[in-house]
Nucleic acid binder design. Structure first.
Lengths: 106, 106
DNA sequence: CTCCTATTTGGCAATATCGCCAAATCGCCA
DNA sequence: TGGCGATTTGGCGATATTGCCAAATAGGAG
């Protein structure tokens, strides 16, 4: 594997890793409906504000979401809706795994 | 966030996490072309066989790839080609990030 | 049966991630 | 200007991931 491929895959993995966490998936799915401020997301998630803020920072760093300060609140919105298409593929994988399990039991 | 949502997102995150590594992305992209045995993948990747075997095990555990023993070799193949669609979205994100960078410089 | 090759598994040290607390910013508004 | 609420950042212990080596396993060939 040459260096160029290595770098390309590193970049790709960094983006994917940004989504590889339940809380961050929740954030992406929630922002897919419409924008939310940090305080709203924090209330929905039920973790410390600093924790939520760091998750948002990771998603923003990956370029998946965007922030916009309005007054004293910071609103986040989904910048790359194409990731939702991926999520449906993941659901397909989960369903296929479950059906594979069933087949083994019978 | 209720328990049901939590479990659903945990399962989703586990699948995504399985792909959140450069080497595993390489494996998925390589198997997308055609199947390969562990020894071939190991040669291409240039890491220890045990390392490659563990990466393959993670992808298999996630239900993304499938294995098939033929003689003394184990051949792996891509089971869920829909993940490739996700990769193109990731490339879009990377491209958008790069263009955002450029805009800031000018 | 025994050797040999391909692959997997166990274990360990290095590194990265996670979530909370405390502290620092930052912009409003009195 | 001073205080306040919203958000971010620093730091720390706990936990998870990673990659290598060594050892175990599995199967075919002699």
């Amino acid at each position: 594997m040459d260096t160029k491929t290595q770098n390309r895959l590193d970049a790709k993995a960094r983006i994917i890793k940004a989504m590889a966490h339940p809380t961050r998936l929740f954030i992406v799915e929630t922002l897919a409906k419409h924008e939310h401020c940090v305080c709203e997301l924090t209330a929905m998630i039920g973790a410390d504000v600093s924790t939520v803020s760091k998750h948002l920072s990771i998603l923003r760093g990956a370029g998946i979401i965007d922030d916009e300060k309005r007054g004293s609140l910071v609103y986040y919105q989904l910048k790359m809706p194409c990731v939702l298409g991926f999520f449906s593929c993941v659901d397909t994988v989960i369903k296929a795994n479950a059906q594979g399990q069933l087949k083994c039991i019978r």
